[in-house]
């Protein structure tokens, strides 16, 4: 466990020193710009838009960081051969992958938390009314990142950074749209398509589960059972990804 934490800490430190946190600044610019652009709107519309833009950007920035940082993380160590030194220390390859995962996740959550603070500030200075549902929406966005980060680890265990980014992006988009696709397929009445989408849905994460932004912005009810299930689902799905990732990684040769 100490080994896992040491690797996580090192990964976090690398992110800090590579100035990944500058992205929080970029997020701030987006927030300010959006409230300027939206200011001509009527009060009611503006408040909803500020909340929507803020919450969506936090998710998008989160995804961006996972792709930027996560896709090349393992590959870089192999490329620069730092991995030879790391794996010659008394840790298992599973420890290594877990450490990298935790490091990435902690970095991500710290950045998302900082962005959330900026977001709450923007809610406070604009006429937007603070709704506790915003926090619930941020929580599920965090759960989503737990899953997406694990997906990145899975791909980066065996493929290149570019492919890892593409595959992860693919999983992200499919995870958000497969539900809709399935409804379409059901309406079209083609049984084969329905089954195919069923299978894919069963493998890919159901990321729409984490999307409660609309409900939060429009003040619709959000059940706590849903929130609990989102957390459990995130833990289960990411565990499976990490088990597979470390199994694949353990079988690799580092020539």
């Amino acid at each position: 466990m100490m080994g896992v934490l040491a690797i996580a800490r090192n990964t976090f430190r690398e992110a800090v020193r590579d100035k990944i946190f500058a992205l929080v600044g970029a997020f701030g610019v987006v927030l300010v710009a959006s409230s300027v652009v939206l200011s001509p709107l009527t009060i009611g519309a503006q408040t909803k838009m500020v909340a929507d833009v803020g919450l969506s950007s936090i998710s998008i920035f989160g995804l961006l960081i996972v792709l930027l940082m996560g896709s090349g993380m393992v590959h870089k160590e192999i490329d620069k051969r730092t991995i030879m030194t790391m794996l010659s220390k008394p840790i298992t390859r599973t420890d290594y992958m877990l450490g990298k995962y935790l490091g990435l996740l902690i970095t991500l959550l710290v950045i998302m938390a900082s962005m959330s603070v900026l977001f709450f500030l923007s809610v406070w200075v604009t006429p937007t009314v603070f709704d506790p549902a915003f926090i619930k929406s941020l929580y599920t966005a965090g759960c989503e990142m737990v899953v997406v980060t694990a997906v990145v680890m899975l791909f980066s265990a065996f493929t290149t950074p570019v492919l890892t980014s593409l595959f992860t992006l693919g999983v992200f988009l499919a995870g958000h749209t497969l539900g809709d696709l399935q409804s379409f397929a059901a309406m079209s009445g083609n049984q084969g398509t329905v089954w195919a989408i069923d299978v894919v849905r069963w493998i890919l994460p159901d990321l729409e589960l984490f999307n409660i932004r609309n409900a939060a912005v429009h003040g619709l009810p959000i059940h706590s059972a849903h929130l609990i299930w989102a957390g459990v689902y995130a833990l289960l799905y990411s565990t499976v990804c990490l088990v597979v990732a470390s199994w694949v990684f353990s079988r690799r040769d580092f020539k």
Binding site: M2, G3, L5, A6, I7, R9, N10, R13, E14, R17, D18, K80, R81, T82, T85, M86, K89, P90, I91
Partner: peptide, 21 residues
């Protein structure tokens, strides 16, 4: 050998010490 760019020599050795518990 090539090691983490972002660390100082001392930090790197501390990381190794941590990995050795």
């Amino acid at each position: 050998p090539w090691f983490y760019d972002h660390l100082t020599g001392r930090e790197f050795l501390h990381l190794v010490a941590d990995l050795h518990r």
